[in-house]
Design a protein around this nucleic acid. Structure first.
Lengths: 149, 149
DNA sequence: TATTGTTATACTCTATAACTATA
DNA sequence: TATAGTTATAGAGTATAACAATA
């Protein structure tokens, strides 16, 4: 009873770290960190975003994200411009250089995903994706509903 | 192509953080951190361990683990004793109080696991466990074989 | 007043390597 | 010389809260 090797939270944590560690090393050679890559992938997919929206998309805290964007701006990866409609908000967008770099990273990222799910059937992969999303939803609800106990 | 919402590494990371964050809050009320809980669960399961072995079991770096054990020792959760056979090694064991505390946490941990996999069938849960272990193996090999590229 | 984003502080985990004490 | 564990240092992420500018 309660063998870590059969305990879902532990298996989840270990698998996530294996993937993140492996891909981080690859990204380091390109001068990009994993959180930076998440920002780049999100902006590539969704287009220019406000900091708050980007925080939701990447699940990075706004204070962490603000400083991260500062670093990325220094490296010429993102632009921060005042929003037209709301002068409090900023519009974060990829520079041309970062967009090109992102296109170079995408195939690497897909290769890492393939390495992670190697030897799994398409239907298993589909199940995996669905269950991982469900876990996030199950616990996300639990976290925001403090009366759950 | 490359939507984070369908990208396995991202789904994995997000699910793992949801579970870890939710359970951390619960543990904080008992004065225990998540890494401490991992140490306690490992020692509960495997009995007294040397630091190196405990590092493998928990996937916590030895330097991090050494300081973590120092904190746990201060709180009276673990003992560190010289090994009989090898005077370089230490045997880490749970104190009686920590063993009792661990028994109190186990049902909480199982409840969190159940919350995470809520609405999943037994067969789905079995698939999930197998695939998560497989991902760890797939990437673990990749990480230790630097010629993989 | 509430909201958007920034900054400050303090804490934890990590990587790396120097260090000690044994073997 | 190699190994087990400890300690030091620097870097990155997080939480929390205070803060400025705008709504």
């Amino acid at each position: 009873m309660l063998d870590l090797a059969q305990y879902v939270p532990w298996l989840l944590n270990r698998a996530a770290r294996s993937v993140a560690d492996a891909f981080s090393r690859e990204l380091a050679a390109l001068g990009v960190t994993l959180p930076m890559w998440r920002v780049m992938a999100s902006l590539r997919r969704a287009g220019p975003q406000r900091l708050g929206e980007l925080s939701s998309l990447t699940a990075i805290e706004t204070s962490t994200l603000s400083r991260l964007l500062g670093q990325m701006q220094q490296r010429g990866l993102v632009r921060r411009a005042r929003s037209h409609g709301d002068a409090r908000a900023i519009a974060v967008s990829l520079t041309r250089r970062a967009a090109a770099l992102t296109e170079r990273i995408v195939p690497l990222a897909l290769r890492y995903e393939q390495a992670a799910v190697r030897d799994m059937s398409d239907s298993e992969i589909a199940i995996l994706k669905r269950l991982l999303a469900q876990i996030h939803e199950n616990l996300g609800v639990l976290m925001h509903d403090k009366s759950a106990d």
